[in-house]
Design a protein around this nucleic acid. Structure first.
Lengths: 189, 189
DNA sequence: ACATATCGCTACGATACCGTAGCGTAGCGA
DNA sequence: TCGCTACGCTACGGTATCGTAGCGATATGT
């Protein structure tokens, strides 16, 4: 079997797709442009993927950045490290555009919805781990639903990234951590 | 002058545009479909608006819901009233889709960016008024940047609406108000 | 070296839009 | 009643995309 060429072409087109997604978004990406830029013939792309959506999904499958899960021993330090890691990602204008694009596309195309889920889930899971550890250590009020915690743990980041990207630069990571901690701290009994 | 017919056609096309925006979003809206649905000839649409973007902007100009600004005398009650008013808006799936669509489109098309601004600004201004009043009454720490306050005043709503719409239903308005107030309360000196 | 999997290329058919032109018609004001 | 204005309609020219067909060239494994 001649698999080498096949793999090479596949990688080239996936790379070009990921690149184009950042530039043009889900809506703006076209197969023709992927072909042009990757040097792979359009027909070959269709030999690998049945349609546009599958290509997009495949391209993103590998490129979802999975943040490290810090484990410093304290909630506060974990949060600060985590924020420090994902803030640069959020600050990228192209990432922001892509994120919005995926959300918007997923809201209309059920096929793409799973993509969306995967996107946010992977990031959310790291934060969740941090939160669960803090809960086990007794650093947070145990019966707060995680959804509520998330609103405050990552909310400011998301709000600014999606709605007011210039304000991301003003975000004080430590302050954000302290505020979240203050809200989630165990209540005295 | 024969202005009556003109106005009538204009209103019909704007109404159809607004309707279509909710269904198909900014990206999905086509002039042909507006023509079909409104009963107004496509040519007439172009006689009123130079291009697609202008039509979209005009259609939304009138349809941005401007929330009332409650003035109950206390921060907490103001917030709860405000939340009660805008929560139903956020809970509409079509509004959510449109909001995402506008954000995504604005992130790419500078012409549409002003639309986006107007959208969020009008809502934000009501909340800001509430906040300023509370500040004058001494109910909040005076030197917190408004951007920070906003993160917590409206963040949970935005996060859930855009990222996890099903969780909107779980949102406890009073609890959200209390948490925001706790964070923003004046520090003892 | 030979067979076969895989690729590149060009060319399509099919849609779907955009935005415009030209012509005839109907309403509206004087 | 007359004339202007705005409209409706059909038909374009142009572009972009999707997804497919057919054929020749090339790499790979045996």
């Amino acid at each position: 079997m001649a698999r080498t060429r096949s793999l090479e072409a596949r990688e080239k087109m996936l790379a070009a797709t990921a690149e184009l997604l950042l530039e043009s978004g889900v809506t703006g990406l076209t197969i023709d442009e992927v072909a042009r830029r990757s040097g792979v013939a359009k027909t070959t792309i269709y030999r690998h993927f049945p349609d546009r959506n599958e290509l997009i999904i495949a391209a993103l499958d590998g490129h979802v950045p999975i943040p490290r899960v810090p484990d410093t021993g304290t909630f506060r330090e974990d949060l600060i490290e985590f924020y420090g890691e994902i803030l640069p990602i959020f600050m990228s204008e192209s990432v922001r555009r892509l994120q919005l694009d995926i959300l918007a596309a997923a809201a209309r195309d059920p096929e793409l919805a799973r993509l969306d889920l995967q996107q946010t889930r992977s990031r959310a899971s790291a934060l969740r781990t941090i939160y669960e550890r803090a809960r086990e250590r007794g650093e947070v009020e145990p019966d707060v639903p995680y959804a509520d915690a998330f609103d405050y743990l990552e909310g400011p980041l998301i709000v600014r990234s999606l709605l007011y990207p210039p304000l991301l630069a003003d975000l004080d990571i430590e302050l954000m951590a302290d505020r979240a901690i203050a809200l989630l701290a165990p209540r005295p009994r």
